[in-house]
């Protein structure tokens, strides 16, 4: 190697050292960042701001009166009930399914995983229609339900069913990869130490998945309160009876009560913001836990 090529080589190496290997020139970076920001502003921040501006356009009094309107209160109440029933059901189901899938080998495991994902794949409207076809007046169990004086479609049970269906995968999907990564060593250790199934679940499994579980529940709750399509099909839109918050917003909007519609919508938007904050906190916590787990696995 001649002296000149050596100097060139050294210069090249210094240049490389100054610039990280993967970074692009400044103008590309700024263009990409600007377009991402513009996109976010247009599709996220502006609509969010619009919800609150529109809701408060006619002042606090209108805003509050829209929220304490009996129909609005009943919609909020129904939404809370649906979420309050769907959440624990999905909690139990999600933990049970994830436990079975992650810690045991059995026939039909892949079928079970596919079934859990089904609500993600099926359109919510179709999901709602399925329940109408099964429990509706002309449905399979329609006559039997009428004879026994029970109502599922156009009533609260239908709404709960539809909500449970669309929120089905969240907890399980969150827990399966986590539990698979943790393996079953700790459970086996507990078992040879003489712990019973319940003791293992409460003392070993649940403490290890608590952050993932919480994260799944937050997502489930957000989806349960915000679900529109499936609930819309089975609800029947009876004011003060079978309207949830998203449905109530639609009705108000269709009746040109914009301020009231946006007022109720702002509650949902607030819920989204709280969910986001909680989610960030939980993600931060579980990342901290995962880092510790990593350290343990490598150390």
């Amino acid at each position: 190697m001649t002296a000149i090529t050596v100097t060139q080589h050294v210069r090249y190496q210094t240049k490389v050292a100054h610039r990280r290997a993967t970074s692009e020139p400044a103008w590309i970076r700024w263009t990409l960042i600007a377009s991402a920001l513009a996109f976010l502003t247009l599709f996220l921040f502006v609509p969010l701001a619009a919800v609150f501006t529109e809701a408060l356009r006619k002042g606090w009094d209108t805003y509050l009166s829209a929220l304490i309107d009996p129909d609005a209160l009943s919609a909020i109440w129904l939404t809370l009930i649906a979420a309050a029933i769907a959440l624990p059901l999905n909690l139990v189901f999600g933990v049970a399914a994830a436990w079975a899938i992650a810690k045991f080998e059995f026939r039909g495991k892949s079928v079970l995983i596919t079934l859990i994902d089904l609500p993600f794949a099926v359109s919510p409207v179709v999901a709602g229609l399925i329940y109408v076809l099964i429990f509706g007046l002309q449905g399979w169990f329609g006559e039997w339900l009428i004879d026994n004086d029970m109502k599922v479609i156009f009533a609260i049970p239908g709404i709960v069913l539809a909500t449970v269906f669309v929120t089905f995968p969240f907890v399980a999907r969150e827990l399966i990869p986590l539990m698979q990564a943790q393996g079953k060593d700790e459970e086996e250790a507990a078992l040879v130490l003489g712990a019973s199934g319940w003791q293992i679940l409460w003392r070993v499994t649940l403490p290890n998945i608590k952050w993932g579980l919480l994260y799944g529940m937050i997502l489930t709750n957000a989806r349960a309160m915000g679900e529109f399509g499936a609930v819309s099909v089975v609800s029947g839109h009876i004011r003060g009876m079978t309207n949830t918050m998203p449905l109530h917003v639609e009705i108000l909007y269709n009746e040109y009560q914009y301020a009231a519609a946006f007022a109720v919508a702002s509650l949902l938007a607030l819920l989204a913001l709280v969910t986001l904050a909680l989610k960030t906190f939980v993600e931060w916590q579980s990342a901290k836990n995962a880092a510790e787990f990593e350290k343990e696995a490598n150390g």
Partner: peptide
């Protein structure tokens, strides 16, 4: 397993991390 009264030491320790 619970009734066999064995002590088992796992390759990757399997300590309860929490």
């Amino acid at each position: 397993v619970r009734e066999r009264q064995v002590g088992f030491v796992f390759q990757h320790y399997a300590l309860f991390r929490h």
